[in-house]
Design a protein around this nucleic acid. Sequence first.
DNA 1: GCGTAACCTTACGCACGGGTAGGTATGCTC
DNA 2: GAGCATACCTACCCGTGCGTAAGGTTACGC
Lengths: 215, 215
Amino acid sequence: MLARVSSPTFKRLPRAVREQQMLDAAVKVFSRRGFHAASMDEIADDAGISKPMVYAYLGTKEELFVACLHREGTRLMEAIAGAAAPDLPADERLWRGLRAFFGFVGAYRDGWAVLYRQARGERPFAAEVATMRGRLIEVVAGMLDHALRAKGREVRAIDLEVVAYALVGASESLADWLADHPEADPEKTATRMMNVAWLGADRLLRGVTWHPPTD
Amino acid sequence: MLARVSSPTFKRLPRAVREQQMLDAAVKVFSRRGFHAASMDEIADDAGISKPMVYAYLGTKEELFVACLHREGTRLMEAIAGAAAPDLPADERLWRGLRAFFGFVGAYRDGWAVLYRQARGERPFAAEVATMRGRLIEVVAGMLDHALRAKGREVRAIDLEVVAYALVGASESLADWLADHPEADPEKTATRMMNVAWLGADRLLRGVTWHPPTD
DNA sequence: GCGTAACCTTACGCACGGGTAGGTATGCTC
DNA sequence: GAGCATACCTACCCGTGCGTAAGGTTACGC
């Protein structure tokens, strides 16, 4: 009626397609602005659609964010799980997993920054992320345990958990570094992480430990 | 007039004191609710003061949050710097620094969770945190460099930086773990971290490296 | 005792943005 | 080509909460 003289490239699209467009737009905008600063209007606009459609398809703002989180999180977990086949030796699995992880972060820098760095702080989503993270940590801990048993050693579960926490934390930190250095090479970053992680873990596996000085 | 029959424990206090009370309240509320969900009214209420006073003393909501960030961040950095005197050997410095760090996190779980986990994601504050974090990473990298030179080895600056990133990330991850496990012992957590960090770093210092398999 | 300055209050303006009501166009089925 | 479902729009409501204007109240100097 006002503008919209005619609809030149205005196609009616099936729901599934629109939903993906919306999610793409949402990830982009959430990533650029952050959850709160992002407005549903901007997301709708960026998807080339109007706001009520977003509500009709993906629900409220929170639900939309969770949907983004889920899509990207699943992609990440699948990328890692697909790379680190369980029948490989532990160091090989670790290496492939790390390479997949950094490859993913390098490729979807937006997805990572928004859906992870963001979500960890934001109250209603922290739990969601914590769950995924927990699964990852379990996998890493399982890898370590496997490697240990293969060498005939045994370590208390809590120690395994802590080492896994540290490895995952270190990887996240390097992922942030990667996201902030667009020119950096994911493969090389993975190699560096592998150096830090495996050499440290390997020593642990041999039973070498450090003790606090008595001061 | 309405209620407030009389002001029983209603003291006029000097500015400096009130400011600290406000900051205490702000940290508490920001920590409980998160930055956006926290309302200036609740903070004022919790500080036993009315809202305009907060604006008069600490400025807008963002400025208030930054003020919290600054106070807690400075406390943390001082705790670490005070513990890790620069004239000690590198492993001793690392150990003392870690112990101070985890001790701080254990003691001020609120301050840590809010002012750090929160701030890293929230758009306008990420830079602030990144700066502090950057200083910490530099310190750690400096420690590693020092230790290396003492052994007559030399490593490229970027490798140092990456290792420092990894160590800091691992420590943050364990700090989160500590914040989520109220019964855990900070000292013990520091020891575990030291095991992961130093043993890995130590091997790096000896020039042992890991190379990706040619697949 | 009285002014004045700092402390502190109640009460409100106002913008912003999430969410919705109600109506229009388009394609599919028979 | 009638009828129906579904994609899609414009325009609006309204809660929430930041930030402020204007006015009490307490302490302290003289």
